[in-house]
Amino acid sequence: MVLIGIWACVVTLASTFGASYWKSHHSAPAEPAAHVEKLEVKKVKPITVPIISDGMLKGYISAEFAYVVEASNTSHGSGGGAVDADSYVMDEAFRRLYADNSLDFRRIEKYDLNSLTRELTKSINQRLGAELVRETLVKSFAFVPKDDIPH
Score class of each variant (00 low, 15 high):
residue 94 F to M: 10
residue 67 Y to K: 05
residue 135 E to R: 15
residue 20 S to F: 11
residue 99 A to N: 12
residue 6 I to G: 01
residue 46 P to Y: 09
residue 63 A to H: 06
residue 106 R to S: 06
residue 141 F to D: 03
residue 57 L to T: 05
residue 24 S to Y: 11
residue 136 T to D: 00
residue 52 I to M: 06
residue 122 K to D: 11
residue 78 S to R: 15
residue 43 K to T: 14
residue 136 T to G: 00
residue 23 K to T: 08
residue 3 L to V: 05
residue 88 Y to N: 06
residue 49 V to R: 05
residue 87 S to C: 01
residue 53 S to I: 08
residue 25 H to D: 00
residue 143 F to Q: 03
residue 11 V to R: 09
residue 104 D to L: 04
residue 60 Y to C: 02
residue 93 A to P: 06
residue 123 S to Y: 10
residue 2 V to K: 12
residue 116 L to F: 04
residue 69 V to L: 07
residue 93 A to W: 03
residue 91 D to C: 05
residue 84 D to E: 03
residue 10 V to Q: 08
residue 118 R to D: 06
residue 85 A to N: 04
residue 124 I to L: 07
residue 129 G to F: 08
residue 13 L to G: 10
residue 41 V to Y: 14
residue 38 K to E: 10
residue 90 M to V: 07
residue 84 D to P: 01
residue 71 A to L: 04
residue 68 V to A: 02
residue 42 K to Q: 12
residue 150 P to S: 13
residue 43 K to D: 13
residue 56 M to A: 12
residue 45 K to Y: 13
residue 37 E to R: 14
residue 142 A to C: 05
residue 126 Q to R: 15
residue 71 A to H: 07
residue 94 F to R: 15
residue 25 H to V: 02
residue 55 G to V: 12
residue 135 E to D: 07
residue 125 N to T: 03
residue 25 H to K: 14
residue 40 E to F: 10
residue 121 T to F: 01
residue 135 E to W: 01
residue 14 A to R: 07
residue 8 A to V: 15
residue 3 L to N: 09
residue 34 A to P: 03
residue 56 M to V: 15
residue 28 A to P: 01
residue 54 D to E: 14
residue 68 V to H: 02
residue 80 G to C: 05
residue 104 D to Q: 04
residue 128 L to G: 02
residue 92 E to T: 14
residue 45 K to N: 15
residue 137 L to A: 04
residue 110 K to I: 00
residue 133 V to S: 03
residue 8 A to H: 11
residue 34 A to M: 08
residue 116 L to I: 06
residue 57 L to W: 05
residue 99 A to H: 11
residue 48 T to Y: 12
residue 16 T to I: 13
residue 7 W to N: 11
residue 8 A to M: 14
residue 49 V to I: 13
residue 85 A to S: 12
residue 146 K to H: 15
residue 23 K to F: 08
residue 116 L to S: 03
residue 79 G to D: 07
residue 18 G to L: 14
residue 17 F to A: 13
residue 60 Y to W: 13
residue 136 T to M: 08
residue 107 R to T: 09
residue 150 P to A: 13
residue 92 E to S: 10
residue 141 F to V: 04
residue 10 V to P: 03
residue 102 S to D: 10
residue 7 W to V: 05
residue 22 W to S: 04
residue 3 L to A: 08
residue 4 I to S: 07
residue 37 E to Q: 10
residue 40 E to D: 08
residue 113 L to I: 12
residue 61 I to W: 07
residue 123 S to H: 07
residue 45 K to I: 09
residue 133 V to T: 01
residue 12 T to Q: 09
residue 35 H to A: 10
residue 150 P to H: 11
residue 14 A to S: 12
residue 100 D to A: 00
residue 59 G to C: 02
residue 92 E to D: 01
residue 113 L to T: 09
residue 131 E to C: 00
residue 50 P to W: 11
residue 120 L to S: 00
residue 108 I to R: 08
residue 25 H to W: 07
residue 116 L to C: 02
residue 82 A to I: 03
residue 102 S to N: 11
residue 6 I to M: 08
residue 88 Y to K: 05
residue 38 K to Q: 13
residue 73 N to V: 01
residue 105 F to W: 13
residue 81 G to C: 01
residue 142 A to D: 12
residue 81 G to L: 12
residue 82 A to Q: 10
residue 28 A to V: 05
residue 100 D to H: 01
residue 98 Y to A: 04
residue 79 G to H: 06
residue 102 S to W: 04
residue 41 V to I: 15
residue 70 E to R: 11
residue 122 K to L: 11
residue 53 S to K: 15
